[in-house]
Design a protein around this nucleic acid. Structure first.
Lengths: 356, 356
DNA sequence: GCATGTATCCGAATCGTTACGGTCAACCGG
DNA sequence: CCGGTTGACCGTAACGATTCGGATACATGC
């Protein structure tokens, strides 16, 4: 474990020159630079990350906060982000914060248990910037992150005051619903939104889009939304509930593909034919959507992850990344909304004549 | 951003005492400790990670090397590992190394592109230890990791010379095959192993188990293994291939649940009834296995991840973790093999009489 | 010949901790 | 009364880089 001083001794120059030579700064003569580089290679010199960050104030590490890993959206985003950051020489510090761990009732309500985790342990000194993946936040948490005085970007639903990259969930709801309306459906239900839940906005916004789309259409009937979680299991539960209620709608807008897949599966078991008897549309274009021939709204995770990461790198003045346009930051904090695309597969079709 | 000196000044003691007081070391009087802690809290003092690791030589970070994130096994392992490490105050540095990036033909063949990534950039100074998730390694890579002189543990297939936690893939192959044999099947095929592939051992070992199980059974017929990737798409391709060949076997041992799900799907499309016409068994107990009513061999990811992590922490002399038993390290490097369990669902049954 | 530039390189301070050796007072038994 | 122990604390030298104000040497212009 050679240090910079060993290299300096071996080359007969000062540590300052070694430092400059190795970092490719100017004002070091070419022959000297070569000699230093050779010696460094020879000795197997590796700069100590600790010493570098202590002296320079930069850590070359980025915090990545996510509520999950074992879910499609998050895992894809993580892979994308890591790949880009590594390209630019940044390490990724992974911080997993399951939403369940955050809701603390009692005297600490509103004071998130993040504080000791984030502020004390991590962000202040270990990372240069932070990417937050789509997690529900309360006001106190937003304030905390804002007050950190560090570069930060969120991917996911809009958080007032924080820079955001994401999709327009309301538009997604409209888009999915409009597809079914265009096909001629008039009796629709929304699956995957619990009206009790207020913190987690995507289902709420998509449901709003659903309602707004229906409001613009004559003769459309709409029942209350059902479901709570965006999981396959919950989709199955919802489907069973609908089947038990009898009088199936002709179209189902599902808040996510996983919910839709659960629904499809249960419909299949019950002998309800899709799309003949009921049309189902999801959101995400989850890898399994194709397997189930599910019509969906494509959620471009990779693009979002990449845009957010590059925006962050721009803020860090990374060589090779163009600086941020001054006017890019929208007052709401939205950096970029990605357009979502309708991907028609076999789970949606015009309703049967006798069913409409 | 208060430093330790600010706290020392505020309390009227030396920085040495502050350091000891805050870390709860002995030999600091109780009243002094309290005064220091109060002052630190007051000033919002947070130790600088860089300074700590420079002075102490420890980083309180663990490198986590994985080939994927967006796959079940890996994402679950990552979540488990992160949770445990965080409990003990360690941060996780996530390093993703897709296997494709490693195979470099030409003059660098055998010298993995890890070197600059791992040795130079990361391991030497940024982390205290490393966990390597199930990735195929060539000899040069093993040597590199061994030579690093750091704590390290692998999860997955056995790598000669490296400490390993995993399952016995050969036993898994036997177990799955034996289940079908016990049901009375005699015409079996193995899906999900490409005999060309040598680096990636789990499929090979499972296939060996398959063969060995069959060898012990009279009258068993066996065709060559098919398939290459352990993906749903590849499962579908294999199923189509089998269907095209005609003369279906009565039982299929799939190397993973994802492959099995692809197979099930394609069989369904082709009108082949499972398990009446063909039995299918997978490996993993992937979350979607239940949805498809797939019989499988449960792969206890969480347990493996936890065991490996705790073993690592023990090597790091972590308070709260019992030290390693001296005799625990088997000469082959295997720390712990986890027993796998057969989980019978609806995709396997005795073969139809006319089909056997 | 002398002041000025320019291109290199050096020394030493600095970053914020930890860790080692030592100081100092109080206390103890003999 | 005194050498020796012990408990509480302090001073300060690392740790391994970066950084900045200067040196040094040599060429240049007048």
């Amino acid at each position: 474990m050679a240090s910079i001083e060993d290299v300096a001794r071996a080359t007969g120059v000062s540590t300052a020159t070694v430092s400059r030579a190795l970092r490719g700064l100017s004002s070091v003569a070419e022959p000297t630079r070569v000699r230093v580089q050779d010696a460094a290679m020879e000795l197997g010199y590796v700069p100590s990350a600790a010493a570098v960050s202590l002296a320079s104030g930069r850590t070359r590490a980025i915090g990545l906060i996510t509520p999950h890993v074992a879910k499609w959206f998050f895992s894809v985003a993580i892979e994308t982000i890591e790949a880009i950051l590594r390209t630019y020489g940044y390490d990724v510090l992974l911080i997993i914060m399951p939403p369940g761990q955050r809701a603390s009732p009692g005297p600490m309500a509103g004071v998130p248990p993040w504080r000791p985790q984030l502020e004390t342990e991590l962000l202040r000194k270990r990372v240069d910037a932070t990417i937050v993946l789509s997690l529900p936040m309360v006001a106190a948490e937003v304030t905390l992150l804002q007050g950190l005085g560090q570069e930060l970007v969120c991917i996911g639903p809009v958080v007032p005051g924080l820079p955001i990259v994401g999709i327009d969930d309301h538009a997604v709801g409209v888009q999915a619903t409009q597809h079914l309306l265009d096909l001629g459906h008039r009796r629709l239900r929304f699956v995957g939104h619990d009206q009790q839940e207020v913190d987690w906005t995507p289902p709420r916004e998509r449901y709003r889009g659903f309602c707004d789309a229906l409001a613009g259409s004559v003769g459309a009937e709409v029942g209350p939304p059902i479901g709570s979680d965006l999981t396959v299991a919950e989709g199955r539960r919802c489907a069973r509930q609908l089947l038990a209620e009898g009088d199936l709608p002709t179209g189902l807008v599902c808040c996510s593909d996983e919910v839709a897949i659960g629904v499809l599966h249960e419909m299949h078991l019950a002998g309800v034919r899709v799309p003949q008897q009921i049309s189902v549309i999801g959101v995400d274009d989850h890898p399994h959507a194709e397997l189930h021939d599910l019509t969906t709204i494509v959620n471009p995770v990779g693009e979002q992850a990449e845009a957010a990461t590059r925006w962050l790198l721009a803020g860090l003045a990374t060589p090779g990344i163009p600086p941020r346009p001054v006017d890019e930051l929208h007052p709401t904090g939205v950096i970029q909304y990605f357009a979502t695309e309708l991907l028609v597969r076999g789970s949606t079709a015009a309703p049967a004549v006798d069913a409409s």
